[in-house]
Nucleic acid binder design. Structure first.
Ligand SMILES: [Mn+2]
Ligand SMILES: [Mn+2]
Ligand SMILES: [Zn+2]
Ligand SMILES: [Zn+2]
Lengths: 144, 144
DNA sequence: GAAGGAATTGGAATGATTCCAAGTCCACTC
DNA sequence: GAGTGGACTTGGAATCATTCCAATTCCTTC
């Protein structure tokens, strides 16, 4: 059960790939789920939502699709401690804040012009390839 | 098999507690393992090293001790993605850098005077309770 | 030195994720 | 427009770090 794009292949209006990723029906459903409600769902959450759109989809496929989307950098995998991974389609550089009152995860962006070197005492010459910053705390409103 | 401190209880020179944590033989062994080689070992690593000092210690106890040390803030639990947690006895505020060439994890401290608010566009009034920052990349020396 | 509560222990259970082998599907070729 | 090959999907089993549990062992206190 694999179907890359539902358009005539001679069309060049809609890509059958996205960032080098072949867009199968299942991958489109999974990606669509993430784009439609950007609440940082777990794989299980995505699975339940995807099933509404494609009842035949399997959990294994959801994991496969999420993995493919992450590898191709269309989606970020977000980890808070060792709880189930969450998935985020926001491609802007950003970090994650979890409201301890509601459990909700919010995107937070860096201020303009901030550089890592200004922040951290990194050893001379290190090349930072990946950065993950997670925050927990309370939002003003959730503060009763 | 639980033994808080090996000193007469009337002595007040060495605490039988540390940060409110009862120091049993096992907890001292586990904490000692972390202090002696600060290479951010996993629970499994700690277990193997602890067994050299106390062959009877169990993995469950190592997990229990690490948990207790973390709750009492004598040790930080460090997570890189979903790999096994690592443990760090460095109480200074710091973040973690993993050298992708060697796998080694290094402590990195913030520059003096850096404030989160200077860095991030946090919504007005949020109270940040926890911050975890992990980096991956290459050290200059490991660069060939 | 008995009692009670906390800590330790071995082993079973958990649960997110990964693995696997079988079945599908599709893009391409002839 | 059938045939092929390779990628993708799927259900179920396996993995494995971590947690749970019930029994036992240890202090600490009375
Ligand atoms: Mn964390
Ligand atoms: Mn990470
Ligand atoms: Zn996000
Ligand atoms: Zn550290």
């Amino acid at each position: 059960m694999q179907q890359p794009i539902d358009l005539p292949s001679h069309s060049d209006e809609i890509p059958s790939e996205l960032g080098g990723l072949r867009l199968t029906k299942q991958r489109k459903v999974v990606y669509g789920v993430l784009l439609d409600l950007r609440d940082h769902p777990t794989a299980q959450d995505v699975f339940l939502r995807a099933k509404e759109r494609m009842p035949s989809i399997s959990l294994a496929t959801v994991y496969n699709c999420l993995e493919a989307l992450v590898v191709h950098k269309l989606v970020k995998q977000v980890n808070f401690d060792r709880s189930p991974s969450r998935y985020c389609p926001n491609l802007e550089e950003h970090v994650h804040f979890q409201d301890e009152a509601t459990g909700e995860i919010h995107d937070v962006i860096f201020k303009k012009g901030v550089k890592l070197e200004d922040l951290l005492d990194l050893p001379q010459g290190v090349e930072v390839r990946e950065l993950e910053l997670t925050l927990k705390g309370l939002m003003p409103s959730s503060n009763q």
